[in-house]
């Protein structure tokens, strides 16, 4: 054990090799440590315990650090799209109409000349009037026939009056 004292002294001076230090570790783990060396068992135990420390499982924090970045990009793009849509809608609602609103469409063509448009409208109306007159002619004939049939309708009234008179006479 004299060697162990020397080795310990060398150890505390920082002059031992790794092999010598392994010998010391084995000695203090052996359970056959001399009384004067017992106070150092805890020191070698501490080193042994420290060497068993492992890194805990990776933290979720790392994953979470990346996610907000993705979320932020998502919200940003949604916000930008929303703003763009609002601007477009506002533009569509409040867009300015052309000032020359007085025009006519003839045969699918836009006519800005008012006199020409008026002339065309009168011609169309006359044409419509002619059609109406032609269409009403048979109706007028029907009315004439109806008027000529008026006396015949009165015959039935006379007949009813005669029947009434006859009834009254029979009663008496």
């Amino acid at each position: 054990m004299a060697d162990m004292n020397e080795l310990l002294e060398k150890y505390f001076k920082g002059e031992t090799s790794l092999q010598e230090e392994n010998l010391l570790k084995m000695y203090f783990r052996s359970g056959k440590v001399k009384v004067e060396h017992e106070i150092f068992i805890s020191m070698f135990d501490a080193f042994e315990e420290e060497s068993q420390v492992v890194m805990p499982a990776p933290k979720r924090k790392v994953i979470d650090l990346k996610q907000p970045k993705l979320k932020r990009i998502g919200w940003q793009s949604i916000s930008i799209s929303g703003i763009a849509a609002t601007v477009l809608l506002a533009f569509w609602f409040f867009r300015t109409e052309p000032v020359d609103a007085d025009y006519a469409v003839i045969h699918g063509k836009r006519i800005n000349n008012a006199a020409y448009a008026q002339q065309m409208a009168i011609a169309k109306m006359e044409k419509v009037n002619g059609i109406l007159v032609k269409t009403m002619k048979p109706m007028q004939n029907i009315q004439k026939i109806k008027n000529s049939l008026e006396p015949i309708n009165k015959i039935s009234d006379v007949r009813i009056d005669l029947e009434n008179i006859q009834d009254k006479l029979n009663f008496k």
Binding site: L18, E21, I41, S42, M43, D45, A46, F47, E49, E50, S51
Partner: peptide
Amino acid sequence: DMAARVKNMIEHLPELQRTIIRMRDVEG
């Protein structure tokens, strides 16, 4: 326990000494 107290003693060493003693006696 004394081992925990020794760890505490190492913990209170200056950084350089703490790092060196651990690299030698813990990591070999």
